[in-house]
Nucleic acid binder design. Structure first.
Lengths: 329, 329
DNA sequence: AGACCGCAAGAAATCGGTTTCGTCAAGTTA
DNA sequence: TAACTTGACGAAACCGATTTCTTGCGGTCT
């Protein structure tokens, strides 16, 4: 690994001059040429560690997400990456597993690695985000809220729940259930509130609470909840799931019971990844995952560039592709 | 951000002593206590950049994969992460998009960031991996081969192709087609060779070449290829796809044509992510993605620890879950 | 012609740790 | 008691960039 000193020696100048050439400060054309040639010849790449120690900042952005295996978050990551790349930043992807301890660990790393900024889908509301913001490092929250007043990019979850549920009623279903995530997570509560709001107007009454299932927000949870719904005395004829994975689980359970949409209405808040179903059998409320990422990255880059206006919150809306109408009996 | 100097001043010792306490060198119990207290009081976290500059290495592992949105690679990433975490290393996930230029860029970054090592699913055989290995930084290739003799963890692709095809014949299908990736990629060629090997023994003869479709290895490619197969004069009654995404595409095309497995046999080399189908309708050759990751990470960590035995190649085998038999006509 | 300004470029300080080297004191051996 | 070993620990070098400080040269203004 050639150093700036070796380049300087070969070019017959001082290290300072080499640095100036590299960073575009004033140097005579003659020496610029000498330095360029020497750098070329030695295949010189500046050592980022040394540079960072001096500059106290790097071109690294940390992206903390709960689960790399969830397509929603990978799409978001792609969005972040695209914007970051274009601005000359690299993205470090970190898995928090929704574990506040892991999250804290990564935030500490972001600090001691002198990262330029952090984009965070927070595991909990009371994470140690302060560790980072206190040091003046910009942080943007994405998809979920923090307790702090920092830049954030959210989805209108209530509206998403409303849209999913409305689509099912419009398609002719009458007993619309909901598979929601665990209590205490804002995003899923908001979406199921959207469902409740529509059902209380257009639904069959009475049954609301029996038709609301809480599950862990993964595939197996959705599957179990769907099975439970089907086992009810008067089962629903349609279901809304508050995220993509539970949607997959619900469809699996239906498939195992020999039922295929649109015989049973299904609306998913989120995209069904790699679905092999006929695409318009199902209502999908497409969460703008990638857009969430690009927006967050843009905001973060602005902060890194020195923008210090008050914290902003951007709320994006989901758009819906409606599934088929309920077939006549 | 407190520095080691401030801690030293507060504790009334030299920075060297603080460093020794932190790194477990011999220091008198009394001073250890003083330093510990000072560090605690100042919330001292060592600056990783400075440490790295001195040590010329970090606890960072770069993982270069072609596509974070492909579940195969995210599962692999999880495997790497689990092992790395346990050993106190952090993983930096990088998307190469199968673009040799991006790959080179990230390899350069791995170098100039003084990363401890690299796990690489190579975009091409002639990438600039030398940049890294030449500097003595350990590199493990995973899933795909490089031209170089370095540690690598592979899948027995031929056997996977054979297993998928055999399962279909065993299930009673007679005209088994293959949807393969583009020519020139070893993994897909090997898998389709496995298919060819079985078909030439058990197949209907003649038609082999017409039943082999090449597509880009993504969902849309698989879908188009399946559509093309269905449009043949004497269409196949089953298909093998050489990866997961093309499998999804093929199933979509079938679904659009109103055909559902097992009426048409489908075997996928790879796992169908988030499948909503009845699970045993389809043959899946489960590639050990996560295991690939843990194995690669283990090998890399050994190298980082100083192991310098000759390059090893580990070949993992896939296991099969067989789909349903072909229904009688 | 002498004072002044501007610019290129080298010397040296700096970032914050780790590590070598040297010193000094306490303990050991002859 | 003198010579020697051992261990704790401070001073200073070091990692490789960037940046400030300083110097010296050439040109301009009066």
């Amino acid at each position: 690994m050639a150093t700036i000193y070796e380049v300087a020696a070969l070019a017959g100048v001082s290290p300072a001059t080499v640095s100036r050439v590299l960073n575009g400060a004033a140097v005579s054309p003659e020496k610029v040429r000498l330095v360029r040639e020497a750098a070329e010849q030695l295949q010189f790449t500046p050592n980022r560690t040394a540079r960072r120690l001096r500059n106290q900042s790097s071109e690294l952005i940390a992206l903390l997400i709960p689960d790399v295996e969830n397509p929603f978050f990978t799409a978001l990551a792609r969005g972040v990456e695209d914007k970051a790349q274009a601005a000359g930043f690299s993205v470090v992807l970190c898995n928090t597993d929704d574990d506040p301890a892991k999250e804290t660990r990564y935030l500490d790393i972001a600090n001691s690695e002198d990262m330029a900024g952090v984009i965070l889908a927070p595991a909990s509301e009371d994470g140690d985000i302060r560790h980072v913001t206190d040091r003046g490092r910009p942080v943007v929250a994405v998809d979920r809220n923090t307790g702090l007043t920092i830049d954030s990019v959210m989805v209108d979850n209530r509206a998403a729940g409303v849209a999913a549920t409305t689509a099912l009623f419009d398609a002719g279903y009458e007993r619309v259930a909901c598979i929601a995530g665990p209590l205490g997570l804002e995003w899923t509560e908001e979406r199921s509130l959207g469902w409740r709001q529509v059902v209380s107007k257009r639904g069959a009454g009475e049954t609301i609470d029996r038709y609301l299932q809480h599950a862990n927000y993964r595939v197996d949870g959705g599957r179990a909840a769907m099975a439970a719904l089907l086992a009810l005395d008067s089962p629903p004829d349609a279901v809304v799931t508050t995220n993509n994975l539970m949607g997959v689980g619900a469809l699996q359970a239906l498939s195992e019971a020999g039922i295929t949409p649109p015989d049973f209405g299904v609306a998913v808040v989120g995209d069904l990844p790699f679905s092999t179903l006929h695409p318009d059998a199902i209502t999908q409320v497409h969460l703008p995952a990638r857009h969430l990422g690009t927006t967050a990255a843009t905001m973060l880059l602005e902060r890194i560039a020195g923008d210090d206006q008050p914290a902003r919150t951007v709320v994006l809306r989901a758009d819906v592709t409606r599934g088929a109408a309920r077939p006549a009996r």
